[in-house]
């Protein structure tokens, strides 16, 4: 497939390129500098409708990895309007497959996470008003509405804490024992290569096997706390985590 990657030179982008690069023709785009790559590269701004529509020409699928967190205008420009631009580009070029990504709390915000267990990707979104979650949730809603009116298949993959498997325990939770049981880190964690592999699984899943035109997946490694549920990513995408990150919740 010819695949357009938006935000392809961020933190997740290189892992997605690793997972897909030998199997598909990639057009990597980002607002930032060019990565060192053998794939086609374009510098674009996802908040520009013209940029995104132009970049999507000749593509079979779009993966949206673009994200901007702290600045309020940029967050809306990228996380919300960037999705609108992506979907207009998909309609313009007849692209049927769109993969969107974001943090788990664009769906399961504090009103879920502070209260419940077995949180799953088929719940109605409750992102709350935290800027990052809120703007990403608006983007996801734009995507969903487009699938109700156009023949576009949307797969949204939700991540949160991502780790280099060689460096678990030295990540955002601190080092060694300091990271144990830090719930902000453990409920929703995955290794970077497994995240890239999940996107490959989504990309290569035949569209006719999707139950609807808008499917969402919670993608994290198998963690014993039971707060979130990753079974849909396993059963529908056929994805299996290679890295289990046991160091995050095992005492020894």
């Amino acid at each position: 497939m010819n695949i357009l990657i938006l935000g392809g030179n961020g933190m997740l982008g290189p892992w997605v390129v690793d997972a897909l690069g030998d199997r598909h023709r990639l057009r990597i785009t980002d607002i930032g500098e060019s990565p060192v790559t053998t794939h086609e590269w374009r510098q674009i701004d996802v908040s520009s409708l013209d940029d995104v529509v132009d970049a999507a020409e000749g593509m079979d699928a779009i993966i949206n990895l673009s994200v901007l967190r702290p600045h309020r205008r940029s967050a809306f420009d990228v996380n919300t309007r960037g999705n609108y631009n992506m979907m207009v580009a998909a309609v313009t070029h007849g692209i049927q497959r769109v993969i969107n990504t974001g943090p788990h709390y664009q769906m399961a915000g504090p009103s879920y996470e502070d209260w419940d267990f077995d949180l799953n990707p088929d719940m109605p979104p409750q992102p709350g008003t935290r800027l990052y979650a809120h703007t990403k949730a608006l983007g996801q809603e734009i995507d969903r509405v487009f699938t109700t009116k156009h023949d576009i298949y949307l797969q949204t993959l939700l991540f949160y804490h991502l780790y280099d498997p060689a460096d678990v325990g030295n990540g955002p939770g601190g080092s060694g024992l300091e990271s144990l049981g830090k719930d902000m880190m453990t409920p929703y964690s995955i290794a970077w290569p497994d995240a890239g592999e999940a996107i490959r699984c989504a990309m290569e899943l035949p569209l006719e096997r999707l139950p609807s035109r808008a499917e969402t997946y919670m993608v994290f490694t198998d963690i014993p706390h039971g707060m979130f549920n990753n079974s849909k990513a396993r059963t529908q995408l056929g994805w299996q985590p290679r890295y289990h990150l046991e160091q995050l919740w095992n005492k020894s």
Binding site: Q126, I142, K149
Partner: peptide, 25 residues
Amino acid sequence: PVPGVEPVILSAHLCEYVCREFGRE
């Protein structure tokens, strides 16, 4: 709601979405 993708309708829907999340809190 069953909004379309016309910007004027989609925007109204998203405006409700923003309000709803503030209301939820």
